[in-house]
């Protein structure tokens, strides 16, 4: 088992290299990189001042200096090596758009994604486990069928589309909730209690959309595994011995049914850490996801690569944590 986790940890390295090499190479061959954009900006500034001469606004020397600054003057492998060396030292470069260090930009946004992710994680487990238990115990009742229908409808539609629907209904039509963002316009002027209310106000709709994604999977997983366990021999024995059904469910079957839920914990973890850029875009939440999306739109490649580095690392670690959870909860699992 130790060997298994060491192997998993070692596999992080080639995975990480593979992802970054691929994206690094792609960003190299793009027109409209930072240097081209600066030339365009300089041109538009000149056009405002002087006659519309179509000459190159920057001298060749300036362009070379810019290319050298961004590492475009070297062959791709060499500049990848340089970049990787900097990443190892914790330096993700500077945004070509805002001229801020990428690492600071990411760590500014990370807590916001974390906030939404954690709340939805707690709520998903808090709601899905009881719901799944109730559905399993009352299998094929009207309650089970109606809730199954709702759960599957929620499962079929992606969370961010539910988000658009929620915005349409509760923000644009009836104006119960704000249209997006993390805090309101007058956040600075509020007292502590007002600020808490303001944040909660902005949290409700995004959290519902975050939950929509894993809600159905978790509920049905809980229900199905519990039903498998309810049909197991040890349950028959327990009931035959005279244990009340309720006690048999909660003390015998439920504990065994929680194992598969632990498996999905790691996947949820990486979603929490990096957020979903679709949901963050829909609700205009300034988290990691939106940062990554906007940097792609603006061709701000240091940020694109930085977000990729951080999110894939978190994703890889999340998967390993997921396996650890399984190993910790299920003594039968050996991972050989």
């Amino acid at each position: 088992m130790k060997a298994y986790f060491i192997r998993r940890l070692l596999l992080v390295i080639p995975t990480f290299l593979g992802i970054t090499v691929m994206v690094f190479a792609v960003t190299r061959f793009v027109p409209g990189g930072p240097v081209e954009r600066m030339i365009a900006e300089a041109r538009s500034q000149q056009a405002g001042m002087a006659s519309a001469d179509q000459d190159q606004p920057l001298s060749q020397g300036q362009i070379d200096a810019l290319n050298a600054y961004y590492g475009f003057d070297k062959p791709i492998l060499q500049s990848y090596g340089l970049w990787l060396g900097k990443v190892m030292r914790g330096d993700l470069g500077t945004s070509t758009r805002y001229y801020d260090p990428v690492i600071d930009m990411i760590f500014d946004r990370l807590p916001i994604s974390l906030y939404f992710g954690l709340i939805s994680l707690v709520l998903v487990y808090g709601v899905c486990i009881p719901l799944g238990v109730a559905k399993a115990v009352r299998h094929n009742s009207r309650f089970d069928n109606v809730s199954s229908f709702l759960v599957f409808t929620g499962y079929a539609i992606p969370g961010w589309v539910i988000g658009v629907l929620l915005l349409l209904l509760f923000a644009a039509r009836w104006e119960f909730f704000p249209l997006g963002g993390f805090v309101g316009d007058f956040y600075e002027e509020l007292d502590t209690w007002g600020r808490v209310k303001d944040v909660v106000w902005h949290t409700v709709l995004p959290v519902i959309s975050y939950m929509a994604g894993s809600f159905a999977v978790m509920t049905m997983l809980m229900k199905n595994t519990l039903m498998d366990n309810l049909a197991a021999d040890y349950m028959r024995t327990a009931v035959a011995k005279g244990l009340p059904f309720r006690r048999a469910v909660f003390h015998h079957a439920l504990r065994n049914s929680l194992i598969p839920l632990a498996t999905s914990f790691g996947n949820n973890l990486s979603l929490i850490l990096t957020g979903s850029f679709l949901i963050e875009k829909v609700f205009n939440i300034d988290g990691m996801g939106l940062l990554g999306y906007e940097s792609v739109v603006e061709r701000d490649y240091p940020v694109v690569l930085g977000v990729l580095v951080i999110s894939s690392l978190l994703f890889l670690i999340g998967n390993i944590v997921s396996d650890l959870c399984v190993a910790l909860t299920d003594p039968r699992v050996t991972f050989s």
Binding site: T15, I19, M22, V26, F277, V307, L308, S311
Partner: peptide, 17 residues
Amino acid sequence: IWSNVPFLYVVIIIASV
């Protein structure tokens, strides 16, 4: 290795190019 790639993000990066 391949299934650990943040799929949608990488597709978007490539598609943007």
